[in-house]
Structure formats: structure tokens, C-alpha cells
Design a protein around this nucleic acid. Structure first.
Lengths: 244, 244
DNA sequence: ACAATAGTGTCTGTAAGACAGTATTGG
DNA sequence: CCAATACTGTCTTACAGACACTATTGT
């Protein structure tokens, strides 16, 4: 049998849901970067309960008087922890349940950021942790943040197979060999140089930015910037080594 | 300059956010089906303000005493409107801002469902509307539901290019020609039969379910069901007609 | 000249798209 | 036998992967 949920008597109908019945609303941001050829994620150590002294993803409550929308809230959190202004930032999803926060029914809107290693110092409670180690080492993460981080990692690795996302892990301008290394770090495997270059240049999201100054040995590389209006490029196929 | 947002004086810190400062939390579900070779979305007519008498996506408040988590809330909404129990249901994203709901800061968690045309009657306030017409005809949708629906449509069309999602638009068992028609309806273009069949069978998400009973003219087709543990299949490439 | 790194050319295999053909049913 | 629909085979071509080759720098 089907039951309508809009007007059953005794049930809280939309206009009768009071503020006390509202779930807690937070925003968390999974911030990735590559440091020393390692994929790292930013974690903060919680000062207050719940989960005091545990590591957690950077996040906070939606400030209804301050945040215009969810994206602005995520940007505020990102800027607060890293000082970075305009990175790649997309929504990952939301996690909400009666049990994920001991304070009550809670839902978090999760964003996903890619940034170059920042020049400014991090917030004092924040630290870069290698992505794999964040899931295993140094004790469990607060809340359901291990789930969230695992989902973010899976999404990153999946999208790197067919998008130009790793370009956001580098400061501009960058060279194609540098970009290739970003792909290799995230994917955890080597990528063929020739195919890689053809693919990147064909995708038409880069513009030349002058020759690199010759530093050590070797031919200096061409530098590139993201084109204006640079949304990430989507490739028609995934990177696929012969053996499936 | 970087500003820490965790301990600035005068700012609401996490444990001091009272229930009154919490955003409104809702869940909306974009429910697609194919009826008479048309892609349709389920809309409901709003009885109460805000946006009374406007068409809207099915949705409602998170019921903190009733819904174990966001997915359960989405399932409750889906079941309430259609009677359908276990369709394809994935998260689409969340939309939240100070202005999207005149009652105050509001965030909605949006899910995305694919179902076969249900046997049971719909809830009395619900109606199938052709997907394109829902965005243009019969007046604007409530809230930011036009944005949400446009995003859902784009996501559906994108994923249909490289996944087996259209299989969830059909009652089981179904034949490959029927499945091919689902692809063609959603994509709005013809798909080559031979390549289509090779692709579907190679993806290994179908199992044979006996020969179709010969009805009218023509050779009866083989019927298929989704395999056990049937998650959707992801194809290595998109459907791509020669001319790009 | 050599090492080191950047960048290009060429071959080959895979698989998708196009389309013509065969198979199986009812009338 | 014909119409109608299901299914298969074959040809062609695009293109990714592999890898060897050339180019440009510093020492």
C-alpha cells in the first residue's frame, strides 16, 4: 500500500517543523594537494568535543548570518585554513544521519578542493597528511570523515582518468612534464609521455606561457597556463594501459 | 591575509550555534521515467505557501524522529509519491542559500531516481510531466527547482552515454531492443544496433531470462534481467557517432 | 662529447561505427 | 512468400599505447 506523506494526521507537516527539529547543518571540505610527490589531504585537530583531539576534515557550521550559500561557506572554510582564494572547488555530496554526530541529527555538505601547496602557513590546527595514511595511521578520524575521505579519494582517482583536474594541483605556469607527474602521483602508475602530451594539447584547455628558464641539465620545457574561462577538460576516453 | 575562522571573537563558534540559527533542511527527489517514448519527471503541486499552487519536485523536510539518514528520507518521499520501493537512487547534490526559500536559510539534499512507469496510481498531488516541458511550460517551478531539474537532466544525459542506467527505466525482464529504445529516448538520437548489443553484453550486467513469447510479427527477442548485486555498469567509452 | 630532460614520429592493435547480411516468427 | 523484427558478420577507420627517435640545454 502506498501512503501519502503530505497530510497524514499527527505527522509534522512542512510548515510545522520547528527550528528545534532541524538537523545540524555543517560544511566540510576535503582539500587535496601534492607535496613531495605525495598526494596529501588537509586535516585539523579538533579542540572541542565531540571527538576532541581527533583528526577531522576542515569544516564548520553553516553561519546563516554570514554565508550567502553553501559554496561561500566552503570557500570561507578553505580560506580560513589555507589562505587560498580560488582553487578548484566542487561539491562531493552530503552525508546526514541520526547517529553521525552525538549532538543529534546532523547533515554535512561536503566539498572537494584541489590546490597547489600554499605559500602562506596553514592555520595552526591544520596539517597536511598523506592521503593513504589519513585513512589508516594516527587513529580514526572524527565523525564519519573516514567514509567521506574514502569517497573523495575514489572520486578524485576516477575523475583524473578522464579530466584535466590535476592541473589545479600545480601553481601556474607549469610544464607538461610537471603536469604528467601530477597524474602519475594521483593515479599511482606511470603514464606514457607521447600519448599524454597529445591528449593534453588536443583538449584545448592550455595556452603557452613562454619558455622555461634553463635551470639544470636538460632542455627547458614550454610553460603553460590554463586558458581563460578555464573549466576542467573532459577527455573522451580514460587513460587505459593495454592490460585491462 | 589569512584569517582563522575558528576563534574570532564575536563569531558564533561551533558549539554555540543554537537551533534557531540552523538552516532549514529538506530532501528533494528528481524522479525520472519513460512513458510513451518520452522522458518524464514527477512533479507535485504545492498546496501550502511558499510558492502555493506552483509545481515543484517531490520533497519534504528531514524528519529527525523518523528518518534514519538522508537516503531513507529520500526513499520515504519516493515511496510516498509513487509506491515504488527499490529503484535506482543516487545523490545528485545539495543546494543551499539564504534566499532560495523565503522562510529563511535553507538547504536541500537532492536525490535522483530512475523507475519504470509504476503500476500503482500516483499520489493525488503528483503528475508526470515531460522533462523538457517541465522547464518551460506551465509556469515556473517553485524554489530553485528549475536549476535542480536542469542539473539532473544534464547528469542523466551525461551518464547515459557511458553507463547502463537506462536499464532501471524498464520493468524486468526486458529485451535488448527495448533497452536500446530507452537509450534513444534519453539521448534523443538513434544508436547503432550492432554496437549497442556488443557493448551491453560485454559489460556483463545482464543475464538471460528466457525467450519472449512471440506476439505479433517478427522474431521474438531474448529477455534479460539485471544480474544479482546489480550495480550499474560503466562502459570504457561514451557512445560517439563518427562526426564529433 | 656526454648526460639529462623535452618533445616528435611511427607502428600496431583494439574496438567502435557503419551497414549489409542472416535468422525466426506470423499472416 | 512476404513483412517484420531480432540478431550476426564483416569492413573500415580512428586513435590510444608503445617505444624509438630527434631536439635543446648545461657541464
Amino acid at each position: 500500500m502506498r501512503k501519502s506523506n503530505t497530510s497524514a494526521p499527527g505527522e509534522a507537516t512542512p510548515n510545522h517543523v520547528t527550528a528545534e527539529q532541524r538537523p545540524i547543518s555543517t560544511v566540510d571540505v576535503v582539500i587535496f594537494t601534492v607535496r613531495q610527490e605525495r598526494l596529501c589531504v588537509l586535516l585539523t585537530r579538533r579542540a572541542q568535543p565531540p571527538f576532541a583531539r581527533r583528526w577531522a576534515l576542515p569544516g564548520g557550521f553553516v553561519h546563516v548570518g554570514q554565508d550567502a550559500d553553501l559554496l561561500a561557506c566552503a570557500q570561507r572554510i578553505l580560506r580560513g585554513k589555507t589562505g587560498v582564494q580560488s582553487p578548484y572547488l566542487e561539491q562531493l555530496g552530503s552525508w546526514g544521519s541520526a547517529t553521525r554526530d552525538p549532538r543529534g541529527w546532523s547533515a554535512t555538505h561536503v566539498y572537494f578542493a584541489l590546490i597547489p601547496p600554499p605559500d602562506q602557513p596553514l592555520a595552526p590546527d591544520a596539517q597536511w597528511v598523506e592521503a593513504g595514511a589519513a585513512l589508516t595511521g594516527a587513529g580514526p578520524l572524527a565523525f564519519d570523515h573516514a567514509d567521506i575521505l574514502a569517497t573523495a579519494l575514489a572520486r578524485l582517482r576516477a575523475k583524473v582518468e578522464y579530466t584535466s583536474l590535476p592541473a589545479y594541483l600545480l601553481p601556474q605556469p607549469f610544464t607538461l612534464p610537471q603536469l604528467q607527474r601530477m597524474y602519475e602521483v594521483v593515479l599511482g602508475r606511470a603514464v606514457d609521455k607521447s600519448g599524454f602530451r597529445t591528449r593534453m594539447l588536443a583538449a584545448d584547455f592550455l595556452q603557452e606561457a613562454g619558455q622555461e628558464a634553463a635551470a639544470a641539465a636538460g632542455r627547458p620545457a614550454m610553460r603553460y597556463r590554463l586558458r581563460e574561462n578555464a573549466r576542467p577538460a573532459y577527455f573522451p576516453r580514460t587513460f587505459a594501459p593495454r592490460a585491462r
